[in-house]
């Protein structure tokens, strides 16, 4: 991005333009038309040069930002799957990366839920066996038990404890797997940060493009039109309605926004105020 914000050349160009204009007037006053044409040609060339330079700068800036994005993510082990390793269309790949984020989060959620599905019956079974054993113990305490009954109870208790050990191992293993499944957050977080970085770089570049375009208009003598503003205002309403129907997506800064509900309680309050 270096040098993109440097408009010093443009300032120089404006000074040159002013200087040359005076020179041009002097030459015209003297009737030196050949000299005047020469000045005009020089100005035209300087203008073209300026245009090329500004557009070139912008292109280079965009390219750098995009290239940086590509290389950094390429270095992470999570994304070695890129085909043939040659230079790929980076912006198009931002989509691919986001899809990858989607895939990772989906896998992690499924793994977690699979483990919960497997673990719940284990915990339930342990609880059920404990309940049965407790009844046996209660019975023994309440009545006169024979030695063989006591021995039976001992064996049942031993096998119960064995089950507990086994169940605890299973649960431990499953919990670890759930823990590991959360690792997606690391990778997806990084990928998303890269994409955010790319987007804001592109945004900055676009803002600068607008600035450069303004200067370019100045150089080429065009005036920008305000007429299109009216049309965009009309569209805004349609877009707002479309957003409302289609949905805005998850809201950030729920606590500080007044047009957004912070939690379920506020939803309930709003609905009950509407007679629900």
């Amino acid at each position: 991005m270096a040098g993109l914000e440097d408009f010093a050349d443009l300032h120089n160009f404006e000074e040159v333009l002013q200087g040359k204009a005076k020179e041009l007037l002097e030459l015209l006053d003297k009737g030196n038309f050949a000299g005047a044409m020469q000045i005009l040609a020089e100005l035209s060339e300087a203008r073209n040069h300026m245009l090329y330079q500004e557009v070139g700068r912008l292109t280079r800036g965009l390219h750098e930002a995009i290239k940086e994005f590509n290389i950094d993510v390429e270095n992470s082990t999570a994304f070695q799957a890129s085909p043939d390793g040659s230079e790929i269309s980076e912006v198009a790949n931002a989509n691919e990366r986001l899809n990858y984020v989607l895939e990772l989060t989906e896998n992690a959620a499924n793994t977690t839920m699979d483990m919960v599905d497997v673990s719940m019956p284990v915990a339930e079974e342990m609880g059920e066996q404990a309940r049965l054993l407790r009844q046996d113990w209660k019975q023994m305490a309440d009545s006169q038990s024979s030695l063989s009954e006591l021995k039976d109870l001992g064996r049942t208790t031993e096998s119960f404890l064995q089950e507990i050990e086994k169940g605890s191992d299973t649960l431990n293993k499953n919990f670890t797997e759930i823990l590991l499944a959360q690792g997606f957050q690391d990778i997806t977080g990084q990928l998303i940060k890269r994409v955010i970085g790319l987007v804001s770089d592109v945004e900055t570049s676009l803002v600068q493009l607008v600035a450069v375009a303004g200067k370019v208009d100045q150089i080429s003598g065009l005036t920008s039109e305000d007429a299109k503003d009216d049309a965009s205002e009309v569209d805004e309403k349609a877009v707002a309605e479309d957003n409302l129907v289609k949905g805005h997506g998850p809201q950030l800064h729920k606590e500080t926004s007044t047009d957004v509900v912070a939690d379920q309680d506020e939803v309930d309050d709003l609905l009950s105020s509407l007679g629900f």
Partner: peptide
């Protein structure tokens, strides 16, 4: 839904 704008809830109601 994650849609949490007041106008949306009113609209849904």
């Amino acid at each position: 839904t994650a849609e949490a704008k007041r106008e949306q809830i009113i609209r849904a109601a």
